[in-house]
Write a protein that binds this DNA or RNA. Structure first.
Lengths: 145, 145
DNA sequence: CGACACGGTCAACTGAGGTGGACCGGTGGC
DNA sequence: GCCACCGGTCCACCTCAGTTGACCGTGTCG
């Protein structure tokens, strides 16, 4: 049993890509082929050895341009190589925000920004009171972090 | 007129982020603050000087870890620095995001959701009044470049 | 069986990515 | 005025991302 490659690492992802995207004749791309192909397609130079290092996990932390090239070659978005948990967390946050598209709510949020803690508290209380008055349930808790 | 920063470059994006996501007191983050914040939040070390170089465009092509750290700090997915389409989508929501970053503000927004138009209007007015009282300027209008 | 080709592995080197620290203009307090 | 501090700019240096070139196993053609 040779080296373990921890799941979620860049090495694991690259490894998976090599296994999944293959040339017509069914066998995995060779490091030289990938390097060559990337260079001829206008990408930056990348050595076969380096590809090997990345796949084995001996090197993680490539530069932006190399990530772009790799993503381009395998046909995945560059985001593929980044941490899944964090990426998903942020995505969730962003979609949550789009739920607040609602112009009036946005208006309030934007303008509340920068107010003193005391004022914010007061406004928050007020919002809660109105909520009660209008018979709305407790909102989904902010549950975060 | 100093250096031009071509649109779509990493420098331009970083520059934009600095302008849009700001601390509570309205002024842009300083390079030291960003560097410090990233380090204390478990990120890799990143020097203030380097941040400056990236923003000015003297260096593009940072490593994966540094991209992760930057994206994490500004609250955008790492893809923001790659794909332009993605970047635009995110940009639309960035001002909102930075508002919601502030926990109390987010609290208010979350709870304001679903209130009647009338109530929202009332609250909005109230926020504006408080803003005046605290001597804050008109916030950047909702639609921003 | 040699000889050659191909592709993964390794180690040493190069240079770009990244840092530390000095310089400098602005600003606020004494 | 003068000094201390803060934040952007610059430059010399160092580390590590990325390359080079050799070694080694395997297969195949004469």
């Amino acid at each position: 049993m040779p080296e373990e490659i921890a799941a979620g690492t860049l090495a694991a992802k690259l490894n998976h890509l090599f296994g999944v995207v293959r040339p017509a004749d069914g066998d995995e791309y060779t490091f030289d082929e990938v390097a060559e192909s990337i260079r001829t397609q206008g990408g930056p130079t990348i050595s076969a050895t380096y590809l090997w290092q990345l796949r084995k996990g001996l090197r993680d932390n490539p530069t932006k341009r190399h990530l772009e090239a790799l993503a381009g070659f395998f046909g995945v978005p560059p985001a593929y190589f980044f941490d899944d948990a964090e990426a998903e967390r942020i995505d969730a946050e962003l979609t949550l925000l789009s739920a607040f598209r609602d112009a009036p709510v946005r208006q309030i949020a934007l303008r509340a920004r920068g107010l003193s803690a005391k004022s914010l508290e007061a406004i928050s209380d007020m919002v809660d009171r109105v909520r009660e008055l209008e018979g709305l349930p407790e909102p989904a808790s902010d549950a975060e972090r």
